[in-house]
């Protein structure tokens, strides 16, 4: 457990230094010193807040998320087209509905990924999460049957938890 914490700490350090170097653009000694000081302050604050753990630095799963993201973009593009048509139609033909979706995700990170994917897709918004059930508000009733979310559920679980161990 101790080694894992050091790994998360180093991951956060690398992410912060990369972020600072990407934002700054000026690499004089004075500004580099100031950047080092600000990174150190951020790390101390994160340590005091006790958020250096698996959720605070989820870099282990970054490959899984990188594989999941293109599929999500495709889904977002498809759903966007539907909602754009619904916005611009002269005759409004929407039929909003509340749907209960049961998820197979176990960990909090997987649930957050799944709920955020649902919300990010236009046309569906997660209204409430209770345990493993989610209340989803959808713009079109016929496109939001609970089976429609099965693939997204499976893929976000694989992205956040890994393929083999579901816990």
């Amino acid at each position: 457990m101790k080694g894992a914490r050091v790994a998360y700490f180093l991951g956060l350090l690398v992410a912060l230094v990369g972020f600072w170097l990407g934002m700054s653009g000026h690499y004089t000694p004075l500004l580099l010193t100031l950047g080092a000081v600000s990174v150190a302050v951020c790390l101390i604050l994160a340590y005091r807040l006790d958020i250096i753990d698996r959720e605070g630095a989820p870099y282990v799963r970054i490959i899984g998320f990188a594989l999941y993201f293109p599929w999500l973009m495709k889904e977002i593009a498809k759903a966007n087209w539907t909602v754009v048509k619904a916005c611009l139609k002269a005759e409004m033909d929407i039929s909003p509905a509340l749907v209960k979706v049961k998820t197979a995700c176990v960990t909090d990170l997987a649930k957050v990924t799944f709920a955020n994917s649902i919300t990010l897709t236009p046309g569906t918004v997660t209204v409430e999460i209770e345990g493993d059930k989610m209340l989803v508000h959808a713009l079109y009733e016929q496109e939001a049957q609970p089976e429609a979310f099965d693939e997204m559920d499976r893929r976000s679980r694989e992205a956040a938890d890994g393929k083999r161990r579901p816990a």
Binding site: N80, V84, P96, G123, H137
Partner: peptide, 16 residues
């Protein structure tokens, strides 16, 4: 017509 459906329209701006 109501708040929840407006939420869907606002997410067009945020995503695409």
């Amino acid at each position: 017509p109501d708040f929840y459906t407006r939420l869907h329209a606002a997410s067009i701006t945020d995503t695409s």
